[in-house]
């Protein structure tokens, strides 16, 4: 069964404004990795906002586990069920790397088997970041480092769904491959639903399904 489903989803930022998304239909399943493609301005980020419950569609429905996302507690949904890697990372600059990660874990209200700091450090090494970086302020990190912290943060509370907005845009191809490997493992081993917005042909090629917004909307 699809964990996330789009049913005739349409969206415009302003009431009676231009429709960014028109009549979208798609089903996302657990255990699969999806690539969302399309040129700039085609509405990829907007779609992720809808999937992450940051906003609700102006027409149609986004369905999570069989219920209209409009009717669920979307704060709870975001804090527990969906990890988002934002295009602009949305880390708190005055907090350290570890603090940013632990904040998300705290916000989820979940119980963890290990100490939060330990989990966070494990994640940092998984995204190829030094342990030493943990105490550094986000402010002092490079774009690529920030991107990886954002990835670590999204994974930190073990969500069912992972949404990533061009997560490899700032990474060299070696790191990019490592990250994609992590995503693949999350989908195929841990049965997560991984949805990645990407421009990269390689990333798209490694995914199970490609969802091209331009083709979709022109259909």
């Amino acid at each position: 069964m699809a964990i996330l489903k789009l049913e005739n989803v349409g969206y415009s930022y302003k009431p009676r404004g231009r429709k960014v998304l028109v009549n979208m239909n798609y089903a996302f399943e657990k255990g699969k990795i999806y690539a969302i493609t399309g040129r700039s301005g085609s509405g990829k980020t907007t779609l992720l906002s809808l999937l992450s419950g940051l906003t609700t569609p102006t027409s149609g429905k986004v369905i999570y586990n069989g219920t209209d996302i409009r009717t669920v507690d979307r704060y709870k949904y975001r804090s527990k069920n969906v990890g988002v890697i934002f295009q602009s990372y949305n880390l708190l600059p005055q907090l350290s790397v570890l603090e940013n990660i632990i904040l998300s874990m705290d916000a989820s209200g979940k119980k963890f088997e290990k100490a939060k700091k330990e989990i966070a450090n494990d994640l940092l090494s998984r995204v190829d970041l030094d342990d030493e970086l943990g105490s550094k302020k986000i402010l002092h990190l490079s774009g690529g480092e920030q991107q990886r912290v954002a990835i670590a943060r999204a994974l930190s509370f073990f969500p069912d769904i992972l949404l990533a907005d061009e997560p490899t845009g700032n990474l060299d191809s070696a790191t990019q491959n490592d990250i994609v490997e992590i995503f693949k493992k999350l989908a195929h081993q841990d049965q997560k639903c991984v949805i990645i917005v990407t421009h990269s042909k390689e990333v798209a090629a490694q995914s199970d399904e490609v969802f091209n917004l331009e083709k979709q909307s022109s259909r």
Binding site: L54, Y75, K76, Y77, R78, S79, K80, V84, F86, N90, L91, L92, L103, S104, A107, S108
Partner: peptide
């Protein structure tokens, strides 16, 4: 911005 980050990460 901090408020945006908090609410985006699901803090009500």
């Amino acid at each position: 911005y901090e408020i945006g980050v908090y609410t985006a990460m699901g803090i009500s």
